[in-house]
Design a protein around this nucleic acid. Sequence first.
RNA 1: GUCCCUAUAGUUCAAUCGGAUAGAACAAGAACCUCCUAAGUUCUAGAUCCAGGUUCGAUUCCUGGUGGGGACACCA
Length: 576
Amino acid sequence: MYNKFMMITDIIKKSIQSALVELDISYDGDITIEHPRELSHGDFATNIAMVLAKKEGKNPRELAEALSEKITAPEISSVEVAGPGFINIKLIDEFFSYELKVIQEKGDFYGWNDSWEGKRILVEHSSPNLFKPFHIGHMMNNTVGEAMTRLCRTTSAEVTMISYPSDVSLGIGKAVWQFLQYGIEKINEFKTVSEKMAFLGKCYAEGTQAFKDNENIEPRVREITQDIYEHRDTEAHQAYKIGRDLNLEYFIQMTARLGSAFDGFIFESEAGKIGKEIITKHTPSVYTESNGAIIFEPNEKDLEKNKSLHTRVFINKDGNPTYEAKDTGLLKLKFDRYNPELSIFITDSEQGPYFEVVETAAGKVHKEWQEKTIHKTHGRMQFKGQKMSSRLGNTPIVSDILDAVNEEVYVRAGDRELSQDQADMISIAAVKYAVLRTQAGKNINFDPDTSLSFEGDSGPYLQYTYARSQSMLRKAQEQGIEVSANRPEDWETTDIERYLYRYPIVVEQAFKDLAPHHVVTYITELAQLFNSWYGNTKIVDADNQASGYKLALTDATAQVIKNGLWILGISAPEEM
RNA sequence: GUCCCUAUAGUUCAAUCGGAUAGAACAAGAACCUCCUAAGUUCUAGAUCCAGGUUCGAUUCCUGGUGGGGACACCA
């Protein structure tokens, strides 16, 4: 009852297995059953006849025919042989209407399972560089990371979501230097967080420029950086703390706007010290000295397993931990604090090879740091179109992007009245959909003029479909039509029903692959089926006996779309 | 130079660990609001980078090219 789909797959598999036994065929491999892409091919299909034909010395079609006669179960209505030897299985109609009740009952949790119940998963994403603007790359990271996190939640795991802000660096020293030039009090001239942030962003840019232009300030900038590292009680550290807190607040606001709420942070300043300790302790057993620095050099066995490994510096010759050491410290902190069964983190794909080295080395210090960690990447967003890319620049910041998209949304909305929140919700849907529809890790060719579509395969399309279904349900209620999952006598099972019950397995697979785009594809196709049905059927119809069931179907479809959108971090509006 | 990833309609993406007639959307052309939201629906036209190989069967696996992205010692 809880996991209906697994039950039905088991039933199908068992019926095939006993058919094999009846024909006296021994086969101990896994029987693969799948959903045919084409709905008219049936609800399940197996290629078992083609797999076994050669071994049995039989023609695949004949074998399939023989098998198909022996495959039976109460849930199976028909078994047919097709193509080169596929066996197509159709389910009885009652199965589908029963599933509508299951969807109703489980509601927002339809599609969840208990595969990871009682286990802990840690996800780290959206890690910002404090003092630097929150730009397009962070938004991609956040979108992918949030979807991954929510996918994890569907397994009933105890999921903790954290971020790893970079809070110490020479770059930050430069920004603080510039901040001090203006004077700490200057910050009080700005009222809102975003105004203050704009000022700090200006400090970052100007400080970086000043550092380039004027060699004389370098000693002072380094001193400031050191003040920050060592928490010295100086004006610089005071300025730093103001800036850091503001940046953090802004980060929390910005990610909240995108739909994320973090459970905690691990700061780079914490990871550095610990990282250095680990590296020092495991030199020369894991790490080695070379030219005054401490490095990790993969051995031949490592290279056999992974050709992309290479030598990297963990502690530089000045004795300071590099990013490699900091990330090693981060690994330890994650496992010490959260003790996860699985630790996932998301970065830009350019850091892929880098992390493979860090993790290979870390695995030699502590096995589980490598074995339980999964690094997922997102691609880059490459701008193609002229319109918005020239307006927003090369690395546009998130708030500007959303503002620009909002304008488009208002244009698209025409006469409809939209609140700021509604427009924001639609904009975010459009952007997130564009990011999540493709396989994570691949670069996205982003053409704001076309990719940011509000029609067809798009976030707003899904939102619109949902909103429309809700509108129908409201209308039905006004007219006193009761929603009923009781199948009418002469009801012919629709493609939507044949599609709906597949949702839980799509989610399960998406989690296994950590591939949110499977969910995108599925709910888009579901929405298409639904819209098509809507186009040629009158659903809210007090004079029609079947109206109640049609509404139940509408309700179930809307529920599944909503649940899918939730995984993607896109909200489902009641109206738009 | 070495190594990794990648290549699908004009464009942006799919294709369930080798499966059936390669799915959508945008753009192009033709229809549909006296009925529930036209950000919608229906129809038409259009694609697997090249050359080999593996097998019942290849967009998928292997080899070699070509184009694109990325990594390769003290930056993050």
